[in-house]
Design a binder for these strands. Structure first.
Lengths: 175, 175
DNA sequence: CATTCGGTTCAATTCAAAATGAACAAATTA
DNA sequence: TAATTTGTTCATTTTGAATTGAACCGAATG
């Protein structure tokens, strides 16, 4: 038995399935993630039964490599849930459909790590690094300009903290 | 006079400038926008004086085309502000540095339009489009599966409304 | 133990999006 | 009015990220 019982893995997509997939593919463009993620999640969303690895590859005509990587990402952000089916060695998947879980998973796994790295770099900035220290063929920075620059760097350093207070709230607002 | 007074347009970037630019380039990857946007905004952020079109192209070694398109986008989302300098035909630019303005501009110009289109498509979905209406070589959908599918489509249709209530709040939280 | 099954990894390829640069336009100056 | 400056547009090229596919691995099966 190579495919799910009662499920013809290589039948063409229905109109509805194609449309749901298209919607999620459209979202991938905004989120800046690969198109295949939208296809996989969309197919799972449009299918009441859990699907196996092979089901997904067959119906979407994606390579095993793409499906493997796609599922890994979707699992990492909590967008899909593994389903164990008794007496079947394969992994099955169904979609997480709570908006709150989807959004906060994405924020946690994608945005937060970047924010941290970004905040660390911002903190390391020194005014000193902005004066071109060549043989003074460059004009000295005026004091009001120095002030402006200093203000900007200070602002930059506060951004991470502010993001860290706001982001957790978003999840709650959606809950 | 082909460059800003007292500003050597093609001098190499200082350490500080390079680092600020790198930080904003890193952000572009999360946001899913072109790298050049981060370079342009980063340079403006790291420079106390307003810069002209040509200043930007020279210092970043970007083509005029890239700078033109980059400035258009940054203006559209309100990330930069035009500055008029008396007796100078050229346009100058300085960065918007309020996090609140930056975030809400981006949400308004990039996310909202997509959300709308996406909500419209979701609303148009009909359960009927998910039954494969071939010569019944496919199994009929069971009633509990129909229920699951119906629930999911309903959820999908509520997502846009929820996003529209939450997104405006984000700006205020950052203010 | 040999073979199939279910899935991962990663180097090579493909492809879409970004950058380029030449042609163009509009305003300015000589 | 010719020449210059400032910036836009858009067809082509470039490039980097996504996808592929073959090699690989461990677990199950005969």
């Amino acid at each position: 038995m190579s495919s799910s019982p009662q499920l013809s893995s290589q039948s063409p997509l229905t109109t509805g399935e194609s449309e749901v997939i298209a919607i999620f593919v459209q979202m991938t463009q905004v989120l800046g993630v690969p198109r295949s993620l939208g296809e996989i999640y969309g197919l799972l969303f449009a299918t009441p039964q859990p699907l196996s690895f092979q089901d997904i590859a067959d119906r979407l005509k994606l390579s095993k490599g793409s499906v493997s990587q796609g599922l890994r990402f979707l699992r990492a952000v909590g967008a899909i849930k593994p389903v164990v089916i008794a007496g079947d060695r394969r992994e099955f998947f169904e979609p997480e459909t709570e908006l709150r879980a989807l959004v906060s998973g994405f924020l946690r796994e994608r945005l937060n790590p970047q924010l941290e790295s970004w905040g660390a770099r911002a903190k390391a900035l020194k005014i000193q690094d902005f004066v071109s220290d060549g043989m003074s063929q460059n004009p000295a920075i005026k004091s009001d300009e120095l002030k402006t620059l200093s203000n900007r760097l200070d602002k930059l350093k506060t951004w991470q903290k502010r993001a860290n207070t706001v982001l957790p709230v978003i999840g709650k607002l959606l809950g």
